[in-house]
Design a binder for these strands. Structure first.
Ligand SMILES: NC(=O)c1ccc[n+]([C@@H]2O[C@H](COP(=O)([O-])OP(=O)(O)OC[C@H]3O[C@@H](n4cnc5c(N)ncnc54)[C@H](O)[C@@H]3O)[C@@H](O)[C@H]2O)c1
Ligand SMILES: NC(=O)c1ccc[n+]([C@@H]2O[C@H](COP(=O)([O-])OP(=O)(O)OC[C@H]3O[C@@H](n4cnc5c(N)ncnc54)[C@H](O)[C@@H]3O)[C@@H](O)[C@H]2O)c1
Lengths: 207, 207
DNA sequence: CGGCGCTTGTGAATGATTTCACAAACTAAC
DNA sequence: GTTAGTTTGTGAAATCATTCACAAGCGCCG
């Protein structure tokens, strides 16, 4: 398969949301134009995105909501369950652990870890916070696929090294630190302060 | 000024972090190669990014850490303070309200709002949660520049309409909903479930 | 003070992504 | 069954972003 741009994958994920809204409304077909106006893009963009993976539509009609949902789910790897571990049960880690938006798409929180004795033992939405010393063993025994990093920035790189050594191939980081992972590991970062700075740039540029 | 790509702005913001690390270490100059290896890009990319705004370096030597920091701060609009209001004092809203990473860069939380009587009156790191009925008036009296949306998805679009009507021109949204804002308003969304789905795609594509 | 070595700044080239534009394929209506 | 009206799928064109490659500028050393 040819390399697919991240922007395309991001949009596919959005299209899936819109498809689910349509399904909830009982609609059976959707056109590239509909998907485009919901997603703030163009119909040509939608069709091009889908065309990388095949042709799923019916000319004159559009796309079957259920068939396209299913296909996008397959493309994104969402037909399976992904087992997720959160490290750092502080403010953001706790919020993530209790976030319903993950479970809904097949991301299951199977463990939460911290160093702080005061936090260990706490229950976060059914998951008990465990001591980070148990992390290395649990990564394997719990068959974790993905680790979310919610520890202070200086603890983030050692943690990446640790979990990748244990075989983890997907990491989503929330600490504002420049991280590096070995080849074969996908590491993404969400940086909220950075998002605000981009907003700041846009606002400052206007004035 | 020519239009600057978001990817460039995002990198500038990263460079600023690295410059601050260098300053903390007492280093006075930094080369495009240094910035590049910290940021996982190339030295040509760094120089090109900076060249959109002028030429700040010294050939043979590199960039003055303090002068370049200052210049990037100006470019990003970070010499001033931005007044931020958070709407939704739930799990993520509370975490954001208490996040130190914002204040550090001149983003000051001046108010937090909710509908839930149980949450109103709570103190989050010094800021008292107020009733959302007071929001419209406070947006002006508190001179807010930016609103962070941390309410359930269905409440997000009405909120965008409301705050933009009150004159807000910058919105950072955390709800997984497709939002639209009038022209002149910069609206960005952070969507964590989407980030996990992109990760899912990458992991699934490998296997 | 002259030359060496390093690093910048930037056009030109390449590569990636988006948009355009239209033939082909289908539905629905009559 | 024919036709009018849609909407897809996709090459080609246009735009946007990154990388290349190198002349020019500057510090430093002798
Ligand atoms: N609070 C937010 O809204 C927010 C937003 C964006 C990013 N972040 C980032 O997320 C990270 C956590 O932020 P927070 O606000 O939740 O801070 P926090 O201090 O509330 O939580 C950090 C937690 O990590 C734990 N920890 C530290 N080292 C650890 C280790 N080696 N192993 C396991 N656990 C460890 C601490 O005990 C603490 O409970 C920081 O890097 C922060 O910059 C936070
Ligand atoms: N928890 C997370 O980690 C997380 C992560 C990503 C995104 N989100 C998104 O952020 C939003 C909030 O999530 P949460 O987990 O904090 O949920 P939550 O239920 O804990 O918080 C939502 C809060 O918003 C308040 N609210 C509802 N309508 C309001 C209105 N019109 N005005 C003011 N306040 C209002 C509620 O009273 C509640 O306190 C949701 O859209 C969610 O999808 C949450």
């Amino acid at each position: 398969m040819k390399h697919i741009a991240e922007s395309t994958v991001r949009r596919l994920s959005l299209y899936l949301r819109f498809l689910e809204d349509y399904r909830r409304q009982g609609l059976e077909t959707i056109s590239s134009g509909d998907l485009a106006s919901l997603g703030g893009t163009t119909s040509a963009q939608v069709r091009k995105d889908l065309s990388f993976f095949g042709s799923f539509g019916t000319r004159g009609l559009g796309y079957s909501v259920s068939a396209l949902s299913k296909r996008i789910r397959e493309i994104l790897g969402l037909e399976r369950e992904w087992r997720v571990i959160i490290v750092g049960a502080g403010k953001i880690g706790a919020a993530l652990a209790q976030y319903e938006g993950f479970g809904y798409r097949g991301f299951k929180i199977v463990g939460v870890y911290d160093v702080d004795q005061a936090r260990i033992g706490q229950s976060l939405d059914g998951v008990i916070v465990k001591d980070q010393q148990e992390l290395d063993g649990d990564l394997k025994s719990l068959k974790a696929d993905i680790v979310l990093i919610a520890v202070p920035p200086e603890a983030a790189q050692p943690l990446v090294d640790r979990v990748t050594k244990a075989g983890i191939r997907g990491v989503l980081n929330f600490a504002p630190a420049p991280l590096h992972a070995p080849a074969g590991v996908t590491l993404r970062s969400v940086d909220m302060a950075l998002e605000l700075e981009i907003l700041s740039y846009a606002l400052a540029a206007k004035a």
